[in-house]
């Protein structure tokens, strides 16, 4: 009876509630995170595991394929930021205005790609970027007088394909994020701007943009991570983890290749640690640049 009262007390109950999180955090987060670090200093063979110090990291620095993967992931992240923040923001502003009818329908259609599994969308886009002349991209390029092109066999066009998939999947989602940010802006501010005779551009520049900042930071943060950690889009676009001359290889793709396909877990974990450090640096940099750590005024 005493045990029961103990569990039922207001002091103990919160710990019972949060217990699953503590367990899950310890077992499926902190433990693997620490293991990722320790494994990155090891050579993990089938029979025995050896400590090799920084050998995995020094090897990484000289690894040309890894450099290609880093370059691809960074390029992809950069272009997704350029494409998937300003445009969805403008689309959201337009959607929020009163010159658009049937908004619900457009929002639903624009969200559809996010519901589709990467396996399916990757397959559809691979068919559209086919080198045959009936693929959509070749129809367009022929119409413009360029003839057919091997889209998925050349570096720049491979990246273009990845970016097209990214824009297709995320434009609608990011637009909805910005739309919900816009909804939280007090319309009295726009009325005040009207009274002051502000133009549409001035209203956007001095009211909308600053007040959308929390949403922009959120979208920026998830986009940095999603961009750096992109893997499945490339995996599906090239039907497997190998693209000609590694044009579609990403950091996580390389991690998967070394860790799972070649069973070189120690080296793969070093790749993962580098990815983590890069992701954290970029995020802290943008948080500082955006003044998140400054005192609120």
């Amino acid at each position: 009876m005493k045990g029961k009262n103990f569990l039922y007390s207001q002091k103990v109950a919160p710990y019972v509630f949060v217990l699953p999180f503590i367990l899950s955090f310890a077992i499926f987060w902190i433990y693997p995170l620490i293991t990722a670090f320790t494994m990155s200093f090891q050579d993990i063979g089938a029979i025995k595991t050896e400590w090799v110090g920084l050998a995995n990291y020094t090897k990484l620095l000289k690894d040309k394929v890894f450099m290609i993967a880093v370059a691809n992931s960074t390029k992809y992240m950069f272009f997704t930021l350029v494409l998937l923040i300003p445009f969805p923001m403008l689309f959201a502003v337009l959607m929020d205005s009163n010159i658009v009818k049937a908004k619900g329908l457009w929002k639903a259609i624009l969200y559809m790609p996010a519901l589709t599994s990467v396996v399916i969308s990757g397959t559809l886009f691979r068919l559209m970027f086919t080198e045959y002349k009936t693929g959509q991209m070749n129809i367009i390029s022929q119409a413009l007088g360029f003839g057919t092109y091997k889209w998925l066999k050349n570096g720049w066009s491979g990246m273009l394909a990845l970016l097209v998939v990214a824009c297709w999947r995320w434009t609608g989602v990011n637009m909805l994020y910005f739309l919900s940010g816009l909804k939280s802006i007090d319309s009295a501010l726009y009325e005040a701007a009207d009274i002051d005779g502000a133009s549409a551009f001035q209203k956007f520049r001095y009211v909308t943009l600053p007040l959308l900042k929390p949403t922009t930071i959120y979208v920026l943060t998830i986009s940095v991570y999603a961009g750096l950690a992109m893997f499945l889009e490339s995996y599906m676009l090239w039907a497997g983890n190998s693209s000609p001359n590694n044009i579609g290889l990403t950091i996580v793709g390389y991690l998967y290749k070394r860790g799972i396909e070649k069973n070189d877990m120690g080296y793969a974990c070093a790749v993962g640690v580098v990815l983590l450090i890069v992701a954290l640096i970029i995020n802290f940099a943008q948080l500082i640049l955006n003044g998140t750590f400054k005192k609120e005024d």
Binding site: V18, F21, L33, M39, L275
Partner: peptide, 27 residues
């Protein structure tokens, strides 16, 4: 521990799953 635990919830969002993937697989 409330604030600490909530900070940890946020912290788990800061690390991409792909980094934990291999150790989790072994686990």
């Amino acid at each position: 521990l409330r604030n600490l635990l909530f900070t940890l919830v946020i912290a788990t969002m800061m690390v991409p799953f792909e980094i934990l993937m291999l150790p989790l697989y072994k686990e």
